[in-house]
């Protein structure tokens, strides 16, 4: 059975090799400062007490006032898992976080996907391009403030035009 690391213990253990990198911790989660993501992940991957060699999942959530990048890590030798989170783009500023592709190549497409759909920039990604949508696509659809195409049409159509549109259908 895969053992999940407790957030508080993991936070302490991270602080031991990377002081000042942890923001807070609760349950199974550890919030890491975005600037120190590279250091923390490098340590988590290579240090003998962690050995998190597999990046299970990398994603991001839009919490309106900030974005959260979520890393699900797995250690095969220890059969353990951990959750790492980083809050970026507070106040909906330009969100950016260091890329972990140099540490885990598995982050390659996942970071591109997050950039494409959520608009979080990954500094140092070797191929920082959109993945699902084409270059030049307006906006990042998974953001909560994204206005979809049909919504934008409804917004832009004057009231008297809706009847005509309905008649067409």
């Amino acid at each position: 059975m895969t053992t999940p690391w407790s957030g508080s213990t993991l936070a302490k253990a991270i602080e031991a090799f990377a002081p000042g990198s942890v923001e807070s911790s609760a349950g199974a989660d550890v919030w890491v400062k975005p600037d120190s993501i590279s250091t923390v992940c490098e340590g988590l991957k290579s240090r003998p007490e962690f050995k998190f060699d597999l990046l299970s999942s990398l994603t991001a959530v839009d919490y309106i006032d900030h974005f959260e990048v979520v890393y699900h890590l797995t250690s095969l030798p220890m059969n353990a898992s951990a959750v790492l989170k980083a809050k970026v783009g507070r106040g909906r500023t330009e969100a950016s976080v260091p890329s972990v592709v140099p540490i885990w190549r598995g982050a390659d497409y996942q970071e591109r996907e997050v950039w494409d759909l959520m608009g979080i920039r990954f500094e140092g990604h070797p191929n920082h391009k959109r993945i699902m949508l084409w270059e030049g696509y307006p906006g990042h659809p998974l953001r909560k403030d994204y206005v979809t195409y049909d919504q934008s049409i409804t917004l832009s159509i004057p009231d008297d035009a809706t009847e005509k549109l309905g008649g067409d259908e």
Binding site: S56, S57, T59, V61, D62, H72, R105, G106, D108, Y109, Q110, E113, L142
Partner: peptide, 16 residues
């Protein structure tokens, strides 16, 4: 759900 993300094995297996 406020957010759903799929850890898609097909996509990630294409990494290499």
């Amino acid at each position: 759900p406020y957010r759903m993300h799929v850890r898609s094995s097909s996509l990630i297996n294409l990494t290499l």
